[in-house]
């Protein structure tokens, strides 16, 4: 493999990391509030509201049931509006966030469900406001589980980002498709896949290590 190829791969890794990390971050900025609202508006939640709960649920399920590749194409006008272009790794962030945010919201909701109802009741009995319950009880108590959810979301987003290579996105996925698929350079495709696996593996291991450190449940 020549030097030029290695430079290409290095750029691909950088772009993939950039897309994945930024998309995950923005997806969480949107997904956490969405997941929290969905959780607290449940019929047994601390702020029940059938309308809001159902509304968010339908929105989340709607976006989640559209295949990513279709979503990618469907929101091209939105992407152009926000980024100004539809090509490259920055442009890919828009569809990635759109696909990941509802997914993240569901992850967050399920993490919050792990917090015992008794603990929430105890917090209420001490005179906590709803906001205090969210900030001081729900989110901190669910933190390890939220982190695990974050790792799973990140791997999913990484996979999506590779798919975006088909429609002009950047990163390792684009290299695999352009060289490996269109030019039949199977070795390049193989190398990019290895790198993708290594990236997922690295985040998974680092994440689990972190979770074990911060989780105070269990011995």
């Amino acid at each position: 493999m020549n030097l030029q190829m290695m430079g290409l791969l290095a750029d691909g890794i950088k772009e993939t990391l950039y897309m994945t990390l930024v998309s995950t971050l923005i997806a969480y900025v949107i997904g956490i509030p969405l997941g929290v609202v969905c959780f607290i508006t449940d019929k047994n939640g601390i702020c029940p509201s059938r309308v809001v709960h159902l509304g968010i649920g339908i929105l989340i399920n709607f976006v989640r049931s559209v295949p990513f590749l279709i979503l990618l194409v469907a929101i091209i006008p939105l992407t152009r509006l926000i980024v100004g272009t539809t090509i490259g790794s920055t442009a890919t962030i828009v569809p990635l966030v759109a696909a990941a945010a509802p997914y993240v919201a569901r992850m967050v909701e399920s993490s919050l469900k792990e917090v015992g109802t008794g603990v929430i009741e105890a917090a209420e009995s001490m005179g906590s406001s709803r906001l205090q319950i969210i900030y001081k009880v729900l989110l901190p108590e669910a933190k390890p589980s939220l982190l695990v959810g974050g790792l799973i979301s990140m791997a999913t987003i990484l996979g999506y980002s590779a798919m975006a290579g088909f429609v002009g996105g950047g990163g390792l996925g684009a290299i695999a498709i352009n060289y490996g698929y269109y030019r039949y350079q199977t070795d390049i495709m193989f190398v990019t896949v290895v790198f993708l696996v290594l990236i997922v593996q690295f985040f998974q291991e680092a994440g689990i290590w972190l979770v074990n450190r911060i989780d105070k449940r269990g011995a």
């Binding site: 015992g116 008794g118 603990v119 105890a122 009995s125 001490m126 108590e141 105070k216 449940r217």
Partner: peptide, 14 residues
């Protein structure tokens, strides 16, 4: 009004 419970309900992460 303080309250205590059968299942203690302490904050596990504190």
């Amino acid at each position: 009004m303080g309250m205590i419970f059968q299942q203690f309900n302490l904050l596990e992460q504190r």
